[in-house]
Design a binder for these strands. Structure first.
Length: 600
RNA sequence: GGCCUCGUAGUUCAAUGGAUAGAAUAGAAGUUUCCUAAACUUUAGAUCUAGGUUCGAUUCCUAGCGAGGCUACCA
């Protein structure tokens, strides 16, 4: 329908002013509520071709498209804005094309042509020395949702993560556990493995700070003290032993990482995210190291007097960057080079590699992509850093070491329990078994968090106030879930009453209400919203869209009765409209990784 | 210091350069003999400042003010 209007305008411009503008280059926007019409075309830019004022230009184009297209019934021009009204019959017709009888999921609105592209999306990628927190939730939900969106848009998508299972941070937890742990295990303590290991990471930091304070009191400068604290030196020693595969250190490392993985897996399962392939830094860092040494031979990198290896990026307006320490051990960058190589080996013909990583690492990725390019890999240009903003607390940034974090497990637990309280208050659990009720609470709690984190533009940093729990009313996940439950209830009743959805005589529908027109229009927007969301890697587009759709439905629901409608064809039409709305809500929420209930 | 983001109702978020800047929440006032009131309706409330480009600027450019991030032989 939109295409027909654009085509009509394009033809009008040609016929009236001999101006060439392809239909797909014409921008239509939704007409503002206070004006009559569905689409609005801005005529200001065309006044210079028509040699008339924008209003007259609009009138001329309006007259032309009313006469020459079948869908436009009327128009009005206000200043330079041509408001186009769609005829009622073509709106009903466009719905009948969208509505595919009872097989809703096969509706043409959800069809997307395959792009033939393979895309790898990396997300999560935690360090294995502490449990996941709210920031990881944003990362996981974003990466997972972007994967689903890209898949729905016709791409072959693979979800991966790199597990940062080596490095000084792990050694810190290990060392603290050896020193203070007294053999404590997840079994003996009842703590989840990742939480147990995180506890020793904090313990390390406490001891480290104590030693620094001690050194400073002995007259050593703060800076030097930070470098010389015995416990830090010991951790560094441990990392060297690990790289040398010292059996004792290696066994401890495997044991503690095992605890963490068990904990992470439980958390991922709760979150409803998963991965097609896992990469471990302990596997990739050596590949990276070899490439760095190769690059050194080729003269891409250089060695400093102390033996450390660097890349010079001053030509690019950046700094010099360390790639291998003087003791030969790897840094973050080293392993990332190896990881990228492995990915392009594992996925031949890969069109794009997307890294879902916080915006604090923008510099890192800029440097990484430049290094890959310098090493001569042409695919370097298909790497993309999906950079998202941090989740801040009212007190500022979250810091694991200082304990100012919102723990992922706790938050999910808390939200499910809030959902339970709310549901019980509203007295809506009649007929639920205890298991079904539990399932509902988790679905609602998780829906609330996911929607809360995904409705915001990923690029922007956002605020989370733990004092105010995430809302269940208004622009929230549960609001949309509720709308779906309401429609499900309608559909159950329709089935009981034997309202058929397969033989609707759309041409017999006389008049439809504005609420119904709005819904039809909203449903027709799914495809363009999906495309936009895929192109901009923004689940927020989908969140905004599905919220608007749910709002449109609730207005329709409040104003128009379905089962009291005496015109049976109109009744069928309204049930069909409800059914396709429910399906679209389900699909969109699915893109966000959120499940919707049939009852709540 | 240099580089990169971002400044919109009390608060949390929207707005491919377009009309009288949308929502939600908190505030005020309503709507249950009728399909689920986690809903609906009404109401009040905002573009950091100063310039510039444009028919038109929240959006683009310059300067200032403010917030955050990066600038590690941490990851």
């Amino acid at each position: 329908m939109e295409e027909q209007i654009k085509g009509g305008i394009s033809a009008a411009l040609k016929a009236l002013y001999n101006h060439d503008l392809a239909a797909e280059d014409i921008a239509l926007q939704p007409t503002r509520k206070e004006f009559e019409g569905t689409y609005t075309f801005v005529t200001f830019p065309f006044a210079r071709f028509s040699k008339k004022n924008p209003e007259e230009t609009g009138n001329e184009i309006g007259e032309y498209i009313v006469e020459n297209t079948s869908v436009v019934s009327d128009f009005n021009t206000v200043k330079g804005f041509l408001n186009i009204s769609i005829s009622e019959s073509s709106q009903i017709e466009s719905f009948s094309e969208m509505f595919n009888g009872a097989d809703l999921s096969a509706s043409p609105i959800f069809e997307q042509a395959p792009t033939g592209k393979t895309v790898v999306v990396e997300y999560s990628s935690p360090n294995t020395n502490k449990p996941l927190h709210l920031g990881h939730l944003r990362n996981n939900f974003l990466g997972n949702s972007v994967s689903r969106i890209l898949k729905a848009a016709g791409n072959d998508v693979h979800k991966v993560q790199i597990i940062n299972d080596r490095g000084i941070h792990i050694c810190k937890s290990m060392l603290a556990w050896l020193r203070f742990g007294e053999g404590e295990t997840p079994d003996s303590s009842g703590l989840k493995g990742d939480h147990l290991v995180g506890k020793y990471y904090v313990a390390f930091d406490k001891e480290y700070k104590k030693e620094i304070a001690q050194l400073v009191s002995e007259g050593i400068s703060q800076e030097d003290a930070e470098k010389q604290a015995p416990i830090l030196l010991e951790a560094q020693e441990m990392l060297k032993k690990w790289e040398a595969k010292d059996p004792e250190v290696y066994a401890l490392w495997e044991k503690m990482n095992g605890w963490v993985y068990a904990g992470f897996n439980a958390t991922y399962q709760k979150m409803g995210v998963d991965f097609d392939q896992l990469y471990y830094e302990s596997d990739t860092y050596l590949i990276g190291r070899d490439r760095v040494l190769e690059g050194l031979e080729k003269g891409v990198f250089f060695k400093k007097e102390d033996g450390s290896i660097w890349v010079d990026l001053t030509d690019e307006g950046l700094d010099e960057k360390l790639l291998l320490r003087k003791d030969g051990t790897s840094v973050y960058m080293t392993q990332d080079i190896g990881t990228a190589l492995m990915r392009f080996d594992d996925y031949p013909g890969l069109s794009q590699l997307i890294y879902t990583v916080g915006n604090e690492q923008e510099y890192h990725f800029k440097v990484l992509f430049l290094i890959l390019k310098k090493l001569g890999y042409e695919w370097a240009s298909s790497c993309y850093h999906l950079s998202y903003g941090m989740v801040d607390l009212p007190s500022g940034k979250m810091k694991s070491r200082e304990g100012t974090v919102v723990d992922a497990d706790d938050l999910m637990q808390e939200m499910a329990s809030t959902a339970k309280t709310r549901t019980e208050e509203l007295g809506k659990i009649d007929g639920f078994t205890p298991e079904q009720a539990e399932e509902l609470y988790e679905m609602l709690g998780l829906g609330a968090i996911k929607y809360f984190l995904l409705k915001v533009d990923p690029r922007k940093r956002m605020l989370f106030n733990p004092e105010e729990s995430i809302e269940f009313q208004g622009n929230t996940g549960p609001f949309i879930q509720y709308t779906h439950a309401r429609i499900s209830s309608i559909l159950r009743k329709a089935e009981q009453l034997g309202v058929s959805l397969v033989d609707i005589q759309f041409n017999e529908i006389g008049q439809v209400d504005q609420m119904e027109k709005d819904l039809i229009h909203a449903l027709g927007q799914y495809s363009e919203k999906l495309t936009l969301a895929a192109n901009t890697y923004s689940p927020a587009i989908i969140a905004q869209y599905v919220y608007d759709l749910a709002k449109d439905y609730n207005r329709f629901y409040a104003e128009l009765s379905i089962f009291n409608e005496s015109d049976k064809t109109l009744q069928q039409f309204r049930v069909a409209l409800s059914a396709l709305t429910a399906e679209t809500i389900k699909v969109c929420m699915g893109l966000l990784g959120i499940n919707v209930p049939d009852r709540m």
